[in-house]
Amino acid sequence: MSIADKNIEMIKRIPTLIPDRLDEARDVIAEDFVWHYINPLLPQIEGDYVGVDGLKDFFKKLADLTGGTFGVRLKHAYAVGDELVVAHALPGMTLDGQTFETDAAVPWRIVDGKVTEAWDIPAVYTVRMDDAA
């Protein structure tokens, strides 16, 4: 298995959406890991979150903001060389009474077998509304 394939598998096993289970991924997340969240429509949670504890804090804030409705499906993960994996994710949630799903790109940087950095970039202007809501 190539380094790129190993990196994709590493990203797929990080339970990023379950803050209570993030400790299970400490062996693959660098101590100084940084999660960059970029979303001009949610400025109250935009910013950088450091380490596993910072990532847990981010997802707790997101859960609080969405009334616990936030969830995500991983659509694809692509290796870009031996250092980067770009994930196409489909986050869904209810926010301000509206239920929707959107696309997100999450580039992950892997250095020396550890995830060191990730950028969560949602497509905030092209959401798909849930007709049942």
Results as ranks from 00 to 15, higher is better:
Ile29Asn: 03
Pro43Ala: 07
Asp53Leu: 05
Glu46Tyr: 03
Met1Leu: 12
Leu22Asn: 08
Thr16Ala: 15
Arg73Pro: 01
Asp112His: 05
Glu83Thr: 11
Ile29Pro: 08
Asn7Val: 07
Gly67Glu: 05
Pro122Met: 08
Ala25Gln: 00
Thr94Leu: 02
Met10Val: 03
Lys114Gly: 06
Val124Gly: 15
Pro43Asn: 11
Gly71Arg: 13
Ile110Glu: 03
Leu17Ile: 11
Met1Pro: 09
Tyr78Ile: 15
Val28His: 03
Ala118Lys: 02
Val50Thr: 14
Thr66Ser: 08
His76Tyr: 14
Gln98Thr: 15
Arg13Trp: 03
Leu22Phe: 06
Gly92Met: 11
Ile29Arg: 00
Asp5Cys: 03
Ala132Cys: 01
Asp23Ile: 10
Ser2Pro: 08
Ile38Leu: 13
Phe59Cys: 04
Glu46Asp: 13
Leu84Phe: 10
Trp35Val: 03
Met129Pro: 12
Ile121Glu: 10
Asn39Arg: 10
Asp53Gly: 10
Ala4Asp: 03
Trp108His: 12
Ile45Pro: 11
Val106Arg: 03
Thr126Cys: 08
Asp32Val: 08
Ala123Tyr: 08
Val111Met: 02
Asp112Arg: 04
Pro40Met: 03
Pro107Gln: 10
Leu62Lys: 06
Ala133Val: 09
Lys6Ser: 11
Glu117Met: 02
Met93Ser: 02
Val124Ser: 13
Arg13Asp: 02
Thr66Tyr: 02
Gly71Glu: 14
Ala133Leu: 08
Asp96Thr: 08
Arg21Gly: 02
Glu83Gly: 06
His36Ala: 10
Arg109Trp: 05
Ala118Met: 12
Ile29His: 07
Ala79Pro: 01
Leu41Cys: 08
Val50Gly: 06
Val34Thr: 13
Phe58Val: 12
Glu9Ala: 15
Gly81Pro: 01
Gln98Ala: 07
Phe70Ala: 14
Asp27Asn: 12
Arg13Pro: 09
Thr94His: 02
Arg26Tyr: 00
Lys60His: 13
Val86Cys: 04
Lys75Tyr: 13
Pro122Phe: 09
Ser2Met: 04
Gly97Leu: 06
Tyr125Pro: 01
Thr94Arg: 12
Phe100Trp: 09
Ile110Gly: 05
Glu9Cys: 02
Pro40Trp: 11
Ile3Glu: 12
Lys114Cys: 01
